[in-house]
Structures are given as structure tokens and as C-alpha cells.
Design a protein around this nucleic acid. Sequence first.
DNA 1: ATCCCGAGGG
DNA 2: CCCTCTGGAT
Length: 216
Amino acid sequence: MPDTAASRRIASILATLAARYPAPETMLHWRTPWELLVATVLSAQCTDDRVNKVTPGLFARFPDVAAVAAADVAEVEELIHSTGFFRNKAKHLVATAQLLVRRYAGQVPQSMPALLELPGVARKTANIVLANAFGIQAGVAVDTHVKRLAWRMELTHSKDVLKIERDLMACIPQADWGRANHWLVLFGREVCTARAPRCRACPVASHCPRRDVAEK
DNA sequence: ATCCCGAGGG
DNA sequence: CCCTCTGGAT
């Protein structure tokens, strides 16, 4: 069980961020579960607007799972080049598309274990796809920003992603699990940055146990 | 120069 | 646990 004061902090912060940031579907552009899966994979180490810049061309050239499954990896690499890590991402996307065609009739599976078998998909991506494409609130997606927030808010000091996820789930309304990552990422990039956090501009400074650590 | 909206692999 | 993979923003 997470510390209850920290739980209240996280809940208050999420409520504030929910009012401040738009819905996730307005950020990453996607129309189908497959497109969300692709966009989420591409978003590793990359901002939403850069992903949104390449996905229209990618989806136009390879309109569905079957097309990606038959695609030349080098051509996919070219189309997603600007999102970084393009060799890994292209290889994973093609391999995943091939697996979907082979085992799931070209559909994106709607369960955590099935998603985790897809190359390039781990827990964070699976949580986001399940929640936002299928409305299945399987869990909170944890990435570097979310971890940092959980630590700074003293919800937990664990480095175990599964424990961090469970502690967050205990204090975030289940309906927000799919969106929490998005809000926290934006907040983490704009305000509660890894170094030199902009505490003076922080909308939730009053909830922060480290607000005495002033912005320099 | 340095850091980053992950995931796979040693 | 550590490393690698990448371009782009700052």
C-alpha cells in the first residue's frame, strides 16, 4: 500500500493536469487500434508532433496491417527516420504486423499477454493501446517521466516498474489509467523536468513535498 | 554537448 | 544490472 499522503498528492495532481491538458486522442493521431499501436511504438524517445508528422505518410503508403507485414523494412525505416531508433522501430513494426497476420487475422489482440508477445511492445505500450484503443483499463503506463513523478511525490522509492505501476493504480481513478501517462508526460516535459524543474511555474506546487527545493 | 514519451539483449 | 539504438530539440 502506498503512503496515503502521497496517494492524495498524486490524485490531486492528476485532477489538475486533467483540466489542463487535452485528451490523448488529440495528441497522437490515430484512427484504428493498429494505428495507435504504431504511433505508440514510434513515440519512444520522440515527441508526439514528430510522430504525427510521419504517420500520415506511413499510413498512406502502408494502409493496414497486411501492407506493413509485406513491407520492405528499409522503406519503413525511411518513412519513420525522423522519429529516431528507426531501425529497431521499423524491424519491430514489420515483425509485429507479420505476427498479427499469422496469429490474429490481422487484428490487434485485446489482452496484455498477447500484446506482450509482439516485438517492440512491452508493458507501457500495451497499457496505452488497451486503454485508449479498446477501453480496457489494464494499468497505468509507466515511463521515465511517470517514474520520476512517483519518486518526487514520494509515492514510492522503488525502481520496480511493476510496483510503481501498482502504487499508481491504487491512487489514480481507473477511468484515468489510460490518460494518466499522457498527462504526466506532458507535465514532466514542460514543468517537472528531470533537471532544473520549473517549480515556480508549476500548477501543482502546493502538493509537492519538495516545493521547498526552489527553482534556481 | 547533452538529454530524451522504451524495448531488447548481454 | 548494464548497454545499445537514433534524430532532433535545446
